[in-house]
Design a protein around this nucleic acid. Sequence first.
RNA 1: GCGGGCGUAACUCAAUGGUAGAGUGUCAGCCUUCCAAGCUGAAUGUUGCCGGUUCGAGUCCGGUCGCCCGCUCCA
Length: 577
Amino acid sequence: MTAAEPKPESVSPNPAKSMDAIMALCKRRGFIYQASEIYGGINGFWDYGPLGAQLKKNLRDAWWQDMIMNPCWGRSGPGGQRVRCVPVETCIIQHPKVWEASGHVGGFNDPMVDDKETKQRFRADHLVGLFVVPAENQYIDKAKRPGIRKAALSGQLAPVRSFIASNESEAHLALQELKKRDLGGLDVRAAHVQIDGSESWHAFDMDSARGQMHGLLVQIPMRILEQTHTTIPSPFTGKAGSLTPPRQFNLMFKTYVGATATESDIAYMRPETAQGVFVQFKNVVDTTRVKIPFGIGNTGRSFRNEVTPRNFTFRSREFEQAELEFFCHPSESVEWYQFWRDFRMEWWKSIGLAGDNLILREHEKDELSHYSQGTSDVEYRFPFTAPGFGELEGIAHRGCFDLTQHQTHSKQKMEYFDASRGELAPNGQPKGEWYMPHCIEPAAGLDRGALALICEAYTKDESRASPEFLKLHPRLAPIKAAVFPLVNKDGMPEIAEKLHAELTAKFWRQGSIEMDEKQSIGKRYARMDEAGCPFCFTVDGDTVKDQTVTLRDRDTGAQQRMALDKVASFLSEKLGA
RNA sequence: GCGGGCGUAACUCAAUGGUAGAGUGUCAGCCUUCCAAGCUGAAUGUUGCCGGUUCGAGUCCGGUCGCCCGCUCCA
């Protein structure tokens, strides 16, 4: 920060962290490369180098361990029972109907319009405008009968009201509705519908407080919507100015299944892993003896044609998710929602995002989907979002929306029979209860998580011999430890090699143990600092005499003497292995 | 999608329209008993890509791709 641009400490606690410097380090040390770089790169795609791949694997493993194998570190859920989760691994390509049921296809393949005020989105071709002019108006002059239509369809006349209707009968319903409503001073008493030949528009006469009026109900053409969206009243609020122009949301990656590549072979790459879980919900229930409440986890690549991929790997078009769908009885869903929301926040803290840069943000009521009773984001203050935050994970109460959708579209029963519920039978056993489970969804982005870990770990301290270094949590660090002979002679390399072999044999499951005898000791420490390696063990002349080595700590640079045979147990404790 | 900025070695950057360079890193050798230390040497570039102007283009012009920033968007 220069003196000319002071930045208060409270606004940005890490002003020294520049994204350019972080990106340069990521490239230099082999964490992240641009995808297809030798061909000029491809917008929205990034590859991981050796250290990045291991970092991300460690993050994925940590999620898998703490969410599936030993959920919530063995903690009890709201009902006092142990949390139980199982994994699945589902295909990137699913039956196209999966995405129709989920709402990803259909709803988002057509040009869409947003109402900025109510945050509602609808298909542009479903917007119907009501155009009204006084009977004596020139547009409606008998000699120029089609005038009102022409005026409406050319954008000269703005609609007094708009509706969402996808077909003729819905348009009629909207018209019926008119009779009961007040339309900005127009008290519509009666409307006589007259189908005027074209299916897409309806002209009618009506009585109003202002006398005889002529009306026209017509689908607003796309090109008119583009030009006049600011003057068209919102179908939700009736106020003009809040509609966006129609926009194509082609966010699904399309592909073809089979060699012929015809229209009927179209399939989509998944935009989220969650639907794989819902689609296999019955199979998991029927084949694995799980009982509600329980969770199903799924990790893997997902694809979205983001409008604007930006901010390094934060919003990329191919990304990896780690999602849990936790199923419970509707009456317990809010408690489970709160439980998962709190645990997920705690989890991110436990792997190194412990400072003020991490927040849990509960969504406002008007941000929620219509079916959700609660949604929270775990958000991190990235250098490029500061002083704001970017989402790492969303924890959503999805109610029974997804299972119900798939039940409707697949016509397969998705309800769960809970033998532990229901009235008691004469023999004292519960009769059981059928219900559609509710679902709590903690859905994390692994690429965003890895990026947040790197940003949080990145530290610049000009007073150090190695000014730039990564303070990665030992559990996540791709390189767990390094072994150096202080000098490459006098028996030191041999001892170092032996220690390196011992540590590798013990810890290869967690990450790599490096051995480096080249160049000065300072350079070797500095190299390991940039790679985020937390511990270095140096064999020196004394090692031969007293069987001790120097432990050098990455974060403090402090050194301490340690018995050679204690190194493994020390590391074991630090790595939680 | 719109507007602005920028693309030269692995990284950070130089180079009046006139022979593509430096520092760092990397690698090798020597030397070194704890912090990018020292000495010697080496490798690495169709200056993002394509075209144009010019005797001559890293430099000027057009296009394109990519990255960054601001809007927009983020189901």
